[in-house]
Write a protein that binds this DNA or RNA. Structure first.
Lengths: 146, 146
DNA sequence: ATAACTCGTCAATCCGCTTGTCTATTTGGA
DNA sequence: TCCAAATAGACAAGCGGATTGACGAGTTAT
C-alpha cells in the first residue's frame, strides 16, 4: 500500500549515499578541490560543444552562476575555453587532460559504489533493476536537485 | 557491463525528478514558503523527541545552521518549541497543525509522483523494485546530499 | 539597415551555511 | 560532594555560491 512513500525514501537515500561515496572517492584519488556539483558540469562539458550558456541551462542555473563555475574550473585546471568557430561572442568549453582524469575517477568511483549493490542482488536481478529504472528515468539533463 | 554507470545516472535522475515534483506539488498546495531541504527537517521533527542539536546531526549540518532553520520554521508557523522535561538547556521541537498539514501534503505529493511509475512497471514489478531497493538502502537518516 | 535577441562580463546583493565565542546547564569522575 | 568537562543553544562575523540587473559586443531576423 505505502510502497510509494517507501520508494521515495529509498530513491532519496540511495542517491544521497551515491553522491557521498563518489565524492569521497574522487577526493581520495587526489581531486580534493572538486565538489559534487562539479560532476554535473563535467557531464555536460565532456559531451562536447558546450558554451557557458549551454552549461547554465544544463545545470538549471543562471548564466552568471555558470560563468563563475567555469571560471573556477578553468583556474583549477580542469576546463579550457576555446574560441567558437561560428560565433565570436561565444567560447567553447572543453576538458583538459586533468579534467578527463577527474571524469574517469568519478566514473570509477560510481562503479565502485554500485558494485556491492550488484553483488547483494545478484547479476540477474540487478539487470532487471536497471531495466526497470530505465523505464522510469526522465529524459533530459541530470541536475543537482536540492 | 556498464550497467553500473547507467544505474548511478538513473538513481540520480530519478531522485532529482522526485525532489522537484514533490516540491512543486507542495508549493501548489499552498506551502510556497517551504523548500526541499525543509522536508528533511520535518521528517526528524515529526518523529518526535528532537532538539535542535538532534536535528543538526540528522541533517548533517552545524547546530547553528539547524537553529536558523528552526527559527525560520517557527516564524513561518510550522514548528513549535516546547520546554524539555529533563533538561533546562534544551527545547523539544514539535510540528504545529500547519506543520502536520505540510507533511501530509508532501506525503501525498510523493505518492502522486510515484504513481505513474507504478503504473508503467505494473504492480508486481514495482513491488520487486521496492524490495530490491530496500536491500540496498543504507540505514540512517535521509539527508540532502549536494 | 535596423531592431530584437544572445553570449559573456561586471557589479551589487542575497541567503544558507560555516567558524568562533559565549552563557547556562548537565554529567561524570576524583 | 565538588569541580572539570561536555552539551544545548544564542550571538556575531564572514564566506561561497547563487541571484537580479545592467551592459557592450556580436548575431539573426525583418
Amino acid at each position: 500500500m505505502d510502497d510509494a512513500l517507501a520508494f521515495s525514501a529509498l530513491v532519496l537515500a540511495l542517491s544521497g549515499q551515491l553522491v557521498q561515496e563518489i565524492h569521497t572517492s574522487v577526493s581520495q584519488q587526489g581531486f580534493q578541490d572538486l565538489r559534487p556539483a562539479h560532476g554535473f558540469a563535467f557531464a555536460r562539458i565532456s559531451a562536447g560543444g558546450a558554451t557557458t550558456a549551454d552549461l547554465a541551462e544544463h545545470l538549471g542555473v543562471t548564466k552568471q552562476a555558470a560563468a563563475q563555475l567555469v571560471e573556477e574550473l578553468v583556474r583549477k585546471g580542469y576546463v579550457e575555453r576555446h574560441p567558437h568557430p561560428h560565433d565570436a561572442r561565444a567560447r567553447l568549453l572543453g576538458l583538459t587532460e586533468t579534467g578527463w582524469a577527474a571524469t574517469r575517477a568519478a566514473d570509477q568511483a560510481a562503479r565502485a559504489a554500485v558494485a556491492p549493490w550488484r553483488e547483494v542482488l545478484g547479476e540477474a536481478r540487478f539487470s532487471e533493476l536497471v531495466a526497470d529504472l530505465t523505464l522510469l528515468a526522465p529524459p533530459g539533463p541530470i541536475r543537482p536537485a536540492w
